[in-house]
Deep mutational scan, measured.
Amino acid sequence: MASQGTKRSYEQMETDGERQNATEIRASVGKMIDGIGRFYIQMCTELKLSDYEGRLIQNSLTIERMVLSAFDERRNKYLEEHPSAGKDPKKTGGPIYKRVDRKWMRELVLYDKEEIRRIWRQANNGDDATAGLTHMMIWHSNLNDTTYQRTRALVRTGMDPRMCSLMQGSTLPRRSGAAGAAVKGVGTMVMELIRMIKRGINDRNFWRGENGRKTRSAYERMCNILKGKFQTAAQRAMMDQVRESRNPGNAEIEDLIFLARSALILRGSVAHKSCLPACVYGPAVASGYDFEKEGYSLVGIDPFKLLQNSQVYSLIRPNENPAHKSQLVWMACNSAAFEDLRVLSFIRGTKVSPRGKLSTRGVQIASNENMDAMESSTLELRSRYWAIRTRSGGNTNQQRASAGQISVQPAFSVQRNLPFDKPTIMAAFTGNTEGRTSDMRAEIIRMMEGAKPEEMSFQGRGVFELSDERAANPIVPSFDMSNEGSYFFGDNAEEYDN
């Protein structure tokens, strides 16, 4: 993207840094990872977990959730003011799984939030270390993106479920800051804005008074975040219109849905970061690795190297396929839920299948599930090659597409044709070009129609051997075009429920 120079890199967003050079960025990201790792080690000690239990991804998720809940100030305040039966607002906890007599047992633990905050700050040299908290939120978000298709949420806001490739980060909490905003897809931002506008339509006082002023500035800020994701002048001009509207209503909703559809071809720039579970960072720190000293990046080879040398386990339900569970977590670790499966298959070195073909449910185990038949197995999170994460949407291309997802959002900077089903997408653009945004709409449609099938995206960008740390010898991959490109292809993934 041309304006790259004016933006802070995501590592800076990730670490609240002012302008830093590459070495400083690597050190501050490393410091953040160190903090998460030290916190995780301490929690495993508190909970008396064995090494194996500490490497269980379900335990990692519970521990991450506990610290996120302990620092969720708004919710904590709300819980104190609106006490609900049987919930102690000062405590947080969740299921911890232990191996007892050759069987997995679930144990519900409860801790004072104050105590968890103390352990977290102690692991982070006394700081609140917001960057580390956001990092864990993005890992949870990436896992949700890989596990669930947001059909219901899309339909509720009037969008087409086939636009799911635009929904990265749709389950990120509001408090995820600049680093969170960077990884949100165009569809996620559109959905947040539509929800806001709908509230304004239904509630006369939404934009009024002292609160209304705050609401208005939040609305304009979200519009600017979305505008910054678009790469064409016409899309940005249309966002200006939406932002400046005196009284946002149905016309703005129409414009936003139009823009979301246009992003299936004229893709937005959305950041991709490899955020790993805390149970990967903990053992690495415990083994003596100093992330701050060595430096770390979320968008280069580092996460690949770390996963190459990590042992992570997962509980497996009786009829689940461990290899499929591994694929789910591998995609989440690489922030690749909406990437082209052919690119992923090449990088991973084994075939990556669409969601609907995987015999696996989510990673988390519900409290009512029976533990008797639970097994555990090693997650295979290694890769054959590594590639640089991208934040450009890439230019655009036609490809055989599917009944489910009709476009992709690249996660890796790797040369390819970008699949999208042009006739299906263009069919949504018939007729409606009147109104105050008509010239911009016409211009956007013209650009979409001009998108050429034979153009290559990320020209000359390749993948790298894991021994090639400096990215000196790019390998331009070859793809098996007979395979499906979309992950949520004609899909039956479970729906995400809060």
Rank of each mutant, 00 (worst) to 15 (best):
T6K: 13
R8S: 11
Q12A: 13
E18A: 00
R19K: 00
Q20T: 03
N21Y: 05
A27C: 13
S28C: 01
S28L: 07
M32V: 15
I36W: 10
Q42H: 08
E46A: 00
Y52R: 03
Q58L: 13
I63P: 00
E64V: 05
E64D: 05
R65V: 03
R65W: 10
S69Q: 03
D72L: 03
D72E: 06
E73K: 08
R74Y: 08
K77P: 02
Y78Q: 04
A85S: 02
P89I: 01
T92S: 14
T92G: 08
P95V: 06
P95F: 07
K103F: 13
E107K: 08
V109W: 03
V109T: 00
V109C: 05
L110V: 03
D112E: 04
I116L: 04
R117D: 07
R117Q: 02
I119M: 01
Q122S: 00
D128N: 14
L133G: 02
T134W: 10
H135W: 10
I138W: 10
I138P: 09
L143K: 06
Q149S: 09
A153Q: 04
L154F: 14
R156K: 05
T157P: 01
T157Q: 02
G158F: 01
R162T: 05
C164T: 12
M167T: 07
L172A: 03
G177E: 02
G180E: 10
A182N: 13
A182L: 01
V190N: 13
I194N: 04
R195M: 06
R195V: 13
G200H: 07
N202R: 00
D203H: 07
W207I: 10
G212V: 08
R213D: 09
T215E: 12
S217V: 00
M222C: 04
F230V: 12
T232Y: 07
A233V: 08
Q241D: 12
V242Q: 07
R243V: 07
E252N: 11
I253Y: 10
G268F: 12
G268A: 14
V270S: 12
P277Y: 10
V280K: 12
Y281P: 09
Y281K: 09
P283H: 02
A284K: 07
V285N: 14
G288W: 10
E292K: 03
E292V: 01
G295A: 01
G295L: 10
Y296R: 12
I301D: 13
F304D: 12
S310P: 05
Q311H: 12
V312A: 06
I316M: 02
R317M: 11
H324F: 10
K325C: 11
M331T: 06
S335Y: 12
A337C: 01
L341R: 14
V343P: 07
V343Q: 08
S345W: 05
V352I: 15
V352M: 05
P354R: 00
G356Y: 10
L358N: 11
T360L: 14
A366W: 13
E369T: 05
E369N: 11
M371S: 01
A373P: 13
A373W: 04
T378W: 07
E380Q: 02
R382W: 06
I388V: 14
T390R: 07
G393N: 10
T396W: 00
A401P: 02
A401T: 14
Q405C: 10
S407T: 06
V408G: 12
P410T: 01
D421R: 15
D421M: 14
P423R: 15
T424M: 02
M426W: 03
T430Y: 05
N432F: 15
E434Y: 04
A451D: 05
E455K: 03
M456Q: 05
Q459N: 00
G460F: 02
R461T: 13
R461V: 12
V463R: 07
F464V: 00
R470A: 00
N473Y: 05
I475Q: 09
M481N: 11
N483Y: 14
E484R: 04
N492W: 12
A493I: 13
E495I: 06
